[in-house]
Design a protein around this nucleic acid. Sequence first.
DNA 1: GCAACCTTGACACGATCGTGGTAAGGTTGC
DNA 2: GCAACCTTACCACGATCGTGTCAAGGTTGC
Lengths: 122, 122
Amino acid sequence: MDALTINEAAETTGWSPRMLRYVERLGLIEPPRSAGGYRLYGPAELQRLRTLRELLETHEVGLGEIGFALRMRRDRELRSAVDAWFEAQVARPQHVPASDWLRWEQDKHSRLLAAAGATPST
Amino acid sequence: MDALTINEAAETTGWSPRMLRYVERLGLIEPPRSAGGYRLYGPAELQRLRTLRELLETHEVGLGEIGFALRMRRDRELRSAVDAWFEAQVARPQHVPASDWLRWEQDKHSRLLAAAGATPST
DNA sequence: GCAACCTTGACACGATCGTGGTAAGGTTGC
DNA sequence: GCAACCTTACCACGATCGTGTCAAGGTTGC
Protein backbone atom coordinates (compact mmCIF):
# COMPACT_ATOMS: atom_id res chain seq x y z
CA MET A 1 0.00 0.00 0.00
CA ASP A 2 1.56 3.26 -0.95
CA ALA A 3 -1.11 5.50 0.53
CA LEU A 4 -0.51 7.28 3.81
CA THR A 5 -2.93 7.97 6.60
CA ILE A 6 -3.54 11.50 7.68
CA ASN A 7 -0.85 11.72 10.33
CA GLU A 8 1.76 10.24 8.04
CA ALA A 9 0.74 12.58 5.27
CA ALA A 10 0.93 15.46 7.71
CA GLU A 11 4.46 14.54 8.66
CA THR A 12 5.75 14.28 5.13
CA THR A 13 4.05 17.40 3.85
CA GLY A 14 4.46 19.76 6.77
CA TRP A 15 0.75 20.40 7.15
CA SER A 16 -0.94 19.55 10.41
CA PRO A 17 -3.59 16.83 10.35
CA ARG A 18 -6.09 19.48 11.33
CA MET A 19 -5.13 21.53 8.29
CA LEU A 20 -5.37 18.55 5.99
CA ARG A 21 -8.98 18.18 7.03
CA TYR A 22 -9.49 21.88 6.52
CA VAL A 23 -7.94 21.77 3.07
CA GLU A 24 -10.31 18.96 2.27
CA ARG A 25 -13.30 20.87 3.56
CA LEU A 26 -12.41 23.69 1.19
CA GLY A 27 -12.59 21.17 -1.62
CA LEU A 28 -8.95 21.68 -2.53
CA ILE A 29 -7.60 18.19 -1.89
CA GLU A 30 -10.03 15.39 -1.24
CA PRO A 31 -8.20 12.14 -0.72
CA PRO A 32 -10.00 8.85 -1.33
CA ARG A 33 -11.17 6.97 1.73
CA SER A 34 -10.61 3.46 2.95
CA ALA A 35 -13.63 1.21 3.39
CA GLY A 36 -13.77 2.30 7.00
CA GLY A 37 -13.56 5.97 6.16
CA TYR A 38 -9.85 6.68 6.69
CA ARG A 39 -8.35 9.31 4.42
CA LEU A 40 -5.72 7.79 2.14
CA TYR A 41 -3.10 10.12 0.73
CA GLY A 42 -1.41 8.78 -2.37
CA PRO A 43 1.57 10.28 -4.19
CA ALA A 44 -0.69 12.58 -6.18
CA GLU A 45 -2.28 14.04 -3.08
CA LEU A 46 1.07 14.40 -1.33
CA GLN A 47 2.50 16.20 -4.30
CA ARG A 48 -0.47 18.51 -4.47
CA LEU A 49 -0.18 19.26 -0.80
CA ARG A 50 3.43 20.27 -1.22
CA THR A 51 2.80 22.42 -4.26
CA LEU A 52 -0.18 23.97 -2.54
CA ARG A 53 1.99 25.01 0.36
CA GLU A 54 4.50 26.44 -2.07
CA LEU A 55 1.78 28.34 -3.89
CA LEU A 56 0.55 29.91 -0.68
CA GLU A 57 3.99 30.92 0.49
CA THR A 58 5.25 32.20 -2.83
CA HIS A 59 2.30 34.42 -3.54
CA GLU A 60 1.05 35.36 -0.11
CA VAL A 61 -2.40 33.99 -0.64
CA GLY A 62 -4.61 32.20 1.83
CA LEU A 63 -6.39 28.88 1.62
CA GLY A 64 -9.69 30.69 1.46
CA GLU A 65 -8.60 32.54 -1.64
CA ILE A 66 -7.57 29.35 -3.39
CA GLY A 67 -10.90 28.01 -2.28
CA PHE A 68 -12.53 30.93 -4.01
CA ALA A 69 -10.48 30.28 -7.14
CA LEU A 70 -11.85 26.75 -7.04
CA ARG A 71 -15.36 28.06 -6.74
CA MET A 72 -14.75 30.23 -9.78
CA ARG A 73 -13.63 27.17 -11.71
CA ARG A 74 -16.53 25.01 -10.68
CA ASP A 75 -19.29 27.62 -10.85
CA ARG A 76 -19.31 28.82 -14.42
CA GLU A 77 -22.14 31.19 -13.57
CA LEU A 78 -20.05 32.90 -10.94
CA ARG A 79 -17.02 33.02 -13.16
CA SER A 80 -18.88 34.75 -15.98
CA ALA A 81 -20.45 37.19 -13.59
CA VAL A 82 -17.12 38.17 -12.11
CA ASP A 83 -15.45 38.31 -15.49
CA ALA A 84 -18.27 40.41 -16.85
CA TRP A 85 -17.95 42.84 -14.00
CA PHE A 86 -14.29 43.33 -14.68
CA GLU A 87 -14.76 43.59 -18.43
CA ALA A 88 -17.34 46.30 -17.89
CA GLN A 89 -14.57 48.45 -16.52
CA VAL A 90 -13.43 49.24 -20.06
CA ALA A 91 -16.86 49.21 -21.68
CA ARG A 92 -17.98 52.71 -22.48
CA PRO A 93 -21.08 53.68 -20.56
CA GLN A 94 -23.99 54.74 -22.77
CA HIS A 95 -24.93 57.92 -21.06
CA VAL A 96 -21.65 59.78 -21.18
CA PRO A 97 -21.26 62.13 -24.14
CA ALA A 98 -17.99 61.74 -26.02
CA SER A 99 -16.41 64.89 -24.60
CA ASP A 100 -16.95 63.78 -21.03
CA TRP A 101 -15.98 60.26 -21.92
CA LEU A 102 -12.57 61.51 -22.92
CA ARG A 103 -12.11 63.03 -19.51
CA TRP A 104 -13.14 59.82 -17.81
CA GLU A 105 -10.78 57.82 -19.90
CA GLN A 106 -7.90 60.12 -19.17
CA ASP A 107 -8.59 59.98 -15.50
CA LYS A 108 -8.94 56.26 -15.61
CA HIS A 109 -5.72 55.98 -17.50
CA SER A 110 -3.69 57.77 -14.88
CA ARG A 111 -5.44 55.80 -12.20
CA LEU A 112 -4.53 52.57 -13.91
CA LEU A 113 -0.95 53.65 -14.32
CA ALA A 114 -0.77 54.60 -10.69
CA ALA A 115 -2.34 51.35 -9.57
CA ALA A 116 -0.10 49.24 -11.75
CA GLY A 117 3.20 50.97 -11.20
CA ALA A 118 3.02 52.32 -7.67
CA THR A 119 4.79 50.71 -4.78
CA PRO A 120 1.94 50.56 -2.28
CA SER A 121 3.53 52.39 0.59
CA THR A 122 0.50 51.95 2.84
CA MET B 1 -20.43 68.74 -13.29
CA ASP B 2 -22.00 65.32 -13.40
CA ALA B 3 -19.70 63.73 -10.87
CA LEU B 4 -20.90 63.10 -7.36
CA THR B 5 -18.98 63.40 -4.13
CA ILE B 6 -18.70 60.41 -1.88
CA ASN B 7 -21.80 61.04 0.21
CA GLU B 8 -23.94 61.65 -2.84
CA ALA B 9 -22.57 58.55 -4.47
CA ALA B 10 -23.26 56.61 -1.31
CA GLU B 11 -26.86 57.74 -1.30
CA THR B 12 -27.57 56.81 -4.89
CA THR B 13 -25.79 53.46 -4.78
CA GLY B 14 -26.75 52.19 -1.37
CA TRP B 15 -23.19 51.77 -0.20
CA SER B 16 -22.04 53.66 2.85
CA PRO B 17 -19.33 56.27 2.33
CA ARG B 18 -17.15 54.12 4.55
CA MET B 19 -17.63 51.18 2.22
CA LEU B 20 -16.90 53.27 -0.85
CA ARG B 21 -13.50 54.02 0.60
CA TYR B 22 -13.05 50.37 1.43
CA VAL B 23 -14.01 49.32 -2.09
CA GLU B 24 -11.44 51.76 -3.33
CA ARG B 25 -8.76 50.42 -1.04
CA LEU B 26 -9.36 46.97 -2.48
CA GLY B 27 -8.64 48.44 -5.88
CA LEU B 28 -12.11 47.59 -7.17
CA ILE B 29 -13.41 51.06 -7.93
CA GLU B 30 -11.01 53.96 -7.82
CA PRO B 31 -12.79 57.17 -8.70
CA PRO B 32 -10.76 60.08 -10.03
CA ARG B 33 -10.04 62.88 -7.60
CA SER B 34 -10.63 66.58 -7.69
CA ALA B 35 -7.64 68.89 -7.51
CA GLY B 36 -8.13 69.03 -3.78
CA GLY B 37 -8.37 65.28 -3.40
CA TYR B 38 -12.13 64.75 -3.30
CA ARG B 39 -13.34 61.50 -4.82
CA LEU B 40 -15.51 62.15 -7.88
CA TYR B 41 -17.97 59.46 -8.86
CA GLY B 42 -19.09 59.67 -12.48
CA PRO B 43 -21.80 57.61 -14.16
CA ALA B 44 -19.34 54.82 -14.88
CA GLU B 45 -18.33 54.49 -11.27
CA LEU B 46 -21.91 54.65 -10.08
CA GLN B 47 -22.91 51.95 -12.49
CA ARG B 48 -20.04 49.77 -11.41
CA LEU B 49 -20.94 50.25 -7.79
CA ARG B 50 -24.46 49.09 -8.46
CA THR B 51 -23.43 46.07 -10.47
CA LEU B 52 -20.81 45.23 -7.87
CA ARG B 53 -23.46 45.15 -5.19
CA GLU B 54 -25.57 42.95 -7.39
CA LEU B 55 -22.67 40.61 -8.01
CA LEU B 56 -22.03 40.21 -4.30
CA GLU B 57 -25.64 39.57 -3.46
CA THR B 58 -26.39 37.24 -6.33
CA HIS B 59 -23.43 34.97 -5.78
CA GLU B 60 -22.79 35.22 -2.08
CA VAL B 61 -19.26 36.43 -2.46
CA GLY B 62 -17.41 38.99 -0.39
CA LEU B 63 -15.53 42.08 -1.38
CA GLY B 64 -12.29 40.41 -0.41
CA GLU B 65 -12.93 37.63 -2.86
CA ILE B 66 -13.57 40.04 -5.70
CA GLY B 67 -10.40 41.75 -4.56
CA PHE B 68 -8.62 38.46 -4.95
CA ALA B 69 -10.11 37.99 -8.40
CA LEU B 70 -8.69 41.39 -9.25
CA ARG B 71 -5.30 40.35 -7.98
CA MET B 72 -5.49 37.29 -10.20
CA ARG B 73 -6.19 39.51 -13.18
CA ARG B 74 -3.44 41.98 -12.47
CA ASP B 75 -0.76 39.55 -11.34
CA ARG B 76 -0.20 37.23 -14.27
CA GLU B 77 2.41 35.37 -12.26
CA LEU B 78 -0.14 34.55 -9.59
CA ARG B 79 -2.76 33.62 -12.09
CA SER B 80 -0.52 31.12 -13.85
CA ALA B 81 0.58 29.64 -10.56
CA VAL B 82 -2.98 29.10 -9.39
CA ASP B 83 -4.07 27.80 -12.77
CA ALA B 84 -1.11 25.47 -12.89
CA TRP B 85 -1.96 24.10 -9.49
CA PHE B 86 -5.49 23.29 -10.55
CA GLU B 87 -4.42 21.82 -13.87
CA ALA B 88 -2.01 19.52 -12.07
CA GLN B 89 -5.02 17.83 -10.55
CA VAL B 90 -5.57 15.86 -13.72
CA ALA B 91 -1.91 15.43 -14.62
CA ARG B 92 -0.81 11.89 -14.00
CA PRO B 93 1.92 11.66 -11.38
CA GLN B 94 5.10 10.02 -12.65
CA HIS B 95 5.72 7.57 -9.85
CA VAL B 96 2.48 5.66 -9.85
CA PRO B 97 2.53 2.43 -11.87
CA ALA B 98 -0.35 2.04 -14.26
CA SER B 99 -2.19 -0.52 -12.15
CA ASP B 100 -2.25 1.74 -9.11
CA TRP B 101 -2.99 4.72 -11.30
CA LEU B 102 -6.19 3.12 -12.37
CA ARG B 103 -7.27 2.80 -8.78
CA TRP B 104 -6.47 6.42 -8.12
CA GLU B 105 -8.41 7.51 -11.10
CA GLN B 106 -11.41 5.49 -10.13
CA ASP B 107 -11.33 6.87 -6.65
CA LYS B 108 -10.90 10.36 -7.95
CA HIS B 109 -13.74 9.86 -10.32
CA SER B 110 -16.21 8.99 -7.63
CA ARG B 111 -14.92 11.83 -5.52
CA LEU B 112 -15.45 14.25 -8.34
CA LEU B 113 -18.93 12.99 -8.94
CA ALA B 114 -19.70 13.32 -5.28
CA ALA B 115 -18.27 16.81 -5.10
CA ALA B 116 -20.06 17.98 -8.22
CA GLY B 117 -23.43 16.41 -7.68
CA ALA B 118 -23.91 16.33 -3.95
CA THR B 119 -26.24 18.69 -2.16
CA PRO B 120 -23.98 19.74 0.69
CA SER B 121 -26.14 18.78 3.61
CA THR B 122 -23.58 20.07 6.15
C1' DG C 1 -9.12 -8.56 20.68
C1' DC C 2 -6.35 -4.95 21.80
C1' DA C 3 -3.20 -0.91 21.04
C1' DA C 4 -2.69 2.54 17.99
C1' DC C 5 -4.64 5.17 14.87
C1' DC C 6 -8.61 7.42 12.55
C1' DT C 7 -13.29 9.81 12.39
C1' DT C 8 -16.48 13.74 13.37
C1' DG C 9 -17.86 17.34 16.38
C1' DA C 10 -17.22 20.93 19.85
C1' DC C 11 -14.90 24.69 22.29
C1' DA C 12 -11.18 28.04 22.00
C1' DC C 13 -8.41 31.82 20.65
C1' DG C 14 -5.67 35.27 18.11
C1' DA C 15 -5.90 37.54 13.55
C1' DT C 16 -8.12 39.52 9.93
C1' DC C 17 -12.48 41.18 7.65
C1' DG C 18 -16.40 44.16 7.13
C1' DT C 19 -18.40 47.93 8.97
C1' DG C 20 -19.21 51.89 11.93
C1' DG C 21 -17.87 56.02 14.39
C1' DT C 22 -15.06 60.04 15.65
C1' DA C 23 -11.30 63.48 15.56
C1' DA C 24 -8.21 66.78 13.38
C1' DG C 25 -7.59 69.13 9.54
C1' DG C 26 -8.02 70.50 4.29
C1' DT C 27 -11.50 71.91 0.14
C1' DT C 28 -15.39 73.88 -2.05
C1' DG C 29 -18.70 77.01 -3.34
C1' DC C 30 -21.24 80.73 -2.57
C1' DG D 1 -14.34 83.71 4.77
C1' DC D 2 -17.39 80.58 6.50
C1' DA D 3 -20.63 76.46 6.53
C1' DA D 4 -20.76 72.21 4.71
C1' DC D 5 -18.47 68.78 2.98
C1' DC D 6 -14.32 66.02 2.17
C1' DT D 7 -9.76 63.78 3.59
C1' DT D 8 -6.88 60.47 6.38
C1' DA D 9 -6.07 57.97 10.66
C1' DC D 10 -7.52 55.71 14.68
C1' DC D 11 -10.50 52.85 17.97
C1' DA D 12 -14.18 49.47 18.14
C1' DC D 13 -16.70 45.34 17.59
C1' DG D 14 -19.05 41.19 15.88
C1' DA D 15 -18.07 37.59 12.35
C1' DT D 16 -15.28 34.61 10.01
C1' DC D 17 -10.63 32.43 9.24
C1' DG D 18 -6.82 29.60 10.44
C1' DT D 19 -5.35 26.64 13.73
C1' DG D 20 -5.13 23.87 18.04
C1' DT D 21 -6.93 20.64 21.40
C1' DC D 22 -10.03 17.42 23.43
C1' DA D 23 -13.83 13.86 23.71
C1' DA D 24 -16.46 9.92 22.23
C1' DG D 25 -16.49 6.45 19.30
C1' DG D 26 -15.17 3.50 14.97
C1' DT D 27 -11.01 0.98 12.14
C1' DT D 28 -6.90 -1.40 11.35
C1' DG D 29 -3.40 -4.60 11.69
C1' DC D 30 -1.06 -7.81 14.09
